[in-house]
Write a protein that binds this DNA or RNA. Structure first.
Lengths: 239, 239
DNA sequence: GACATTTCAAGAGCAGTGCTCTTGTTTGTT
DNA sequence: AACAAACAAGAGCACTGCTCTTGAAATGTC
């Protein structure tokens, strides 16, 4: 029964916490993560800076909260994009939709993207709470690849010149996949390597686009990204 | 004749400029680019902060100088690695050496790497002076791919599901290559796309390793990188 | 050689930052 | 009503990038 009475203050706390996060998020899209000023977000929500420390024990703490929110938002966008393809056997469309969702979300949230996938603040180690949300994207990619191969897609062959021990280098990833409930069945080492590579290439492409490394090389970023995504799916043997 | 007299002061200027850059570079390796404090480097070289402004008109100016130095250092390391392969027809070794050089340099200079390929400071547009040094790495990769295909390597085929206009998306890159003196001959659009992709994947892999996104997925980073580099060369049709 | 000009280093100062500590007030519990 | 916990505000510390002013060198000119 004290829930309600308690909630009176707790609800205020949650609301203010949310207000702070919203203000921080708003500042994040215009400025970068490094420029996020705790005093500025405090002013935005009409507080004095020291009051914010009752809700977040440090600036890094605030960034961590934003980090988790960001990973979750991106993960949900990608999951939604995959789920939106009604014909679940249309691997090509599912793959393309997931890849495009990554890029679209990133372009729409450049500040968040820089926080998630840009250079981390030195001396700042992302706490364990972030790894769960952070894996949502790659889980979507892996499940698409897994569905494709369970449906009969041929596994890509390792190049003849490849160093021998392909599987052992990504053993951790394969363990993770097999321990994950939503991903059924074991994972071919070659597919594991290829999916990791594809994941890396997608985010490398988005990073290069957002950070300006493709200026002068790529003229049509939308078309280029589709070309990349298609080749990645082809190299994975799934489209 | 006044060169010597003038040089007395100018040489001191150059030396101090170099000292500042060295101190900044030293601080860069331990802390990140965002944390680079102009006042701290001033203290390191025994000056007061305001004196530094005689040598660099702003903090961004200092960062730009470090940016150019970094691109040049990385470019030179990669060029050297390629040149060190005596048998110029051994494309496999050249490709692997160049790829490994990128990773090795990046791991040895994480601060510089974050400056070059991490999230840029918002509102900071890299000036034109940086694009020359910045292209040195990709030029090495393109020249290796070009040598391979001139020596008879088969061009990779675009995937059957690929969107039609492959070449037009990377027309700018192809123009750049054809205008570049050290790169002889025109460039197959498919090779252009594939080389851009490989370049992206290499830096994506290094970024993911340095920024901690592969923790829990990859156990042996050296071996994993070699697996990636080999597959990239294979997808390019050059090894 | 004496004078004038430019270059340089230093200091003070401004507005901003993250963060801590103290003070007074509000809220919730007994 | 009394007490404890939670809270907002302010002052303050050490730091940042950057500007402006002051005084001292080094350089160029007569």
């Amino acid at each position: 029964m004290e829930q309600k009475a308690k909630t009176a203050r707790q609800r205020a706390r949650e609301e203010i916490t949310e207000e702070i996060l919203a203000a921080a998020r708003a500042r994040l899209t215009s400025h970068g993560p490094g420029e996020l000023s705790l005093r500025a977000v405090a002013r935005d929500v009409g507080m004095v800076s020291s009051a914010v420390y009752r809700y977040f024990s440090s600036r890094d703490d605030l960034l961590t909260a934003l980090l988790i929110e960001g990973y979750d938002a991106l993960g949900e966008a990608v999951e939604l994009a995959d789920r939106s393809v009604e014909d679940r056997t249309d691997i090509h469309q599912r793959w393309l939709a997931a890849c495009r969702a990554i890029r679209t979300w990133s372009i729409e949230h450049p500040g968040d993207y820089a926080l998630l996938y840009g250079s981390p603040v030195p001396g700042y180690a992302a706490p364990q709470d972030t790894v769960g949300p952070a894996t949502r994207v790659v889980i979507v990619l892996i499940s698409i690849a897994g569905d494709a191969h369970r449906a009969g897609a041929a596994s890509p062959l390792p190049p003849s010149a490849a160093p021998a021990e392909a599987g052992s280098t990504v053993a951790a990833a394969m363990e993770f996949v097999e321990a994950h409930d939503d991903l059924k069945g074991p994972l071919d080492p070659e597919i594991a390597v290829r999916t990791l590579m594809a994941w890396t290439t997608i985010f490398g492409t988005v990073s290069f686009e957002l950070f300006g490394h493709l200026v002068g090389s790529v003229s049509d970023y939308d078309a280029y990204f589709d070309q990349v995504a298609t080749r990645l799916g082809s190299d994975l043997g799934i489209i």
